[in-house]
């Protein structure tokens, strides 16, 4: 197994940042939270993912549907020694709640945080809810950066032990205004993003065009860009996703390809498309990793990562098995 050297420039103690800063191709995966109060469901899903990726994303009410909270998932994951990415959306909480959660998450050993605007309440199962959006994603990014780098809350009040976080943002190059998407990325980097996880990429030519703009602006040297990928179960799923789920662009060729595949082979074909996309985007300048989102198909994640040739995942030096971000934080603090 490849071992990652600790980089002195690291801002967090997490595995994801170490993998990226050491120049290795990173893999993250999304863990969809259960509709259950049983922690075992989180552990079972995490066990499969942890072997094949460098960090596990805990989604925050994805699609504006109610599930176990992301901060609680992170608490469970760090307790079991996994490395989560704490997703924070601006939809449900105001600035007071968010800053408190970020501090709490860091105290529980969370090393990575991902800032999102969040899907609107109208697409979820409780459209009657009040939308908060006290912050937008860029204000959220900068606020967390202020907490980390200046050791204070937004109000200016001091934080005695600032959260050491690797700060992430999202990017969606596949929806309008296309010409401004690279500019928007630049704004997110200026606000404090250290890494990016993108929306599902099914349109490689468009992504390539976007990355060219990113490289022209020199942004690929300032941020680690992880491309979002995922398997499509069938042409029906693809159709549903592109019409009903906000922000997902799937070109006709992909839907057509799945449509032509016999029913029993559709799932396999969807997986193959995903692997092909990973292999293609890997070659694009500025891409630092992939983020696998396999909604309700988590069992496919390991196969996809293996078939894309991304195994074995690097481990850190001197860590227990599996290496725990929380333990590392404790060790560094006790020094």
């Amino acid at each position: 197994m490849v071992e990652v050297q600790l980089d002195t420039q690291c801002l967090s103690e997490g595995r994801l940042e170490h993998v990226l800063r050491s120049g290795r191709f990173a893999v993250t995966a999304e863990l969809n939270p259960p509709d259950s109060a049983d922690p075992q469901e989180v552990y079972e899903a995490a066990l499969v993912l942890s072997e094949v990726c460098d960090a596990i994303n805990a989604t925050d009410g994805a699609g504006a549907n109610c599930h176990m909270s992301s901060v609680a998932m992170c608490a469970l994951l760090t307790r079991a020694g996994y490395a989560p990415v704490f997703q924070v959306s601006c939809r449900d909480r105001n600035r007071i709640a968010i800053q408190g959660d970020v501090l709490g998450a860091a105290a529980m050993g969370v090393c990575n945080v991902l800032c999102l605007t969040g899907d609107d309440v109208s697409v979820g199962d409780q459209p009657q809810a009040k939308r908060v959006f006290d912050f937008d994603s860029i204000q959220l990014l900068r606020t967390i950066k202020i907490m980390r780098d200046r050791g204070m809350f937004l109000s200016g009040r001091k934080i005695t032990d600032p959260p050491q976080l690797f700060i992430g943002a999202v990017s969606n190059p596949f929806v309008p205004p296309y010409d401004w998407r690279a500019q928007r990325l630049a704004k997110k980097i200026e606000a404090g993003a250290d890494f990016i996880q993108s929306q599902y990429c099914f349109d490689v030519p468009r992504f390539r065009q976007f990355m060219r703009q990113v490289c022209d602006l020199g942004l690929h040297k300032k941020v680690f860009y992880l491309v979002g990928v995922g398997p499509l179960r069938s042409d029906k799923t693809a159709e549903f996703m592109r019409t009903r789920v906000p922000g997902i662009h799937i070109p006709d060729e992909i839907v057509e390809r799945l449509h032509k595949t016999p029913p029993q082979k559709k799932r396999e074909e969807g997986k193959r498309i995903c692997v092909e996309i990973i292999q293609q985007v890997r070659e694009i300048e500025g891409v630092a990793g992939v983020h696998v989102m396999a909604y309700r198909q988590e069992e496919l994640v390991a196969e996809i990562i293996e078939e894309a040739g991304l195994l074995p995942r690097p481990r850190r030096i001197g860590g227990p098995e599996p290496d725990s971000d929380r333990d590392r934080v404790r060790r560094s603090k006790s020094k």
């Binding site: 697409v123 937008d136 860029i138 204000q139 922000g247």
Partner: peptide, 21 residues
């Protein structure tokens, strides 16, 4: 903007340039 975004568009913009909400 239904999400009151002051720093640019969210990732939910529709292909025809219309609002997610």
């Amino acid at each position: 903007c239904p999400k009151n975004l002051r720093n640019g568009p969210c990732g939910g913009v529709r292909a025809n340039g219309c609002c997610e909400v």
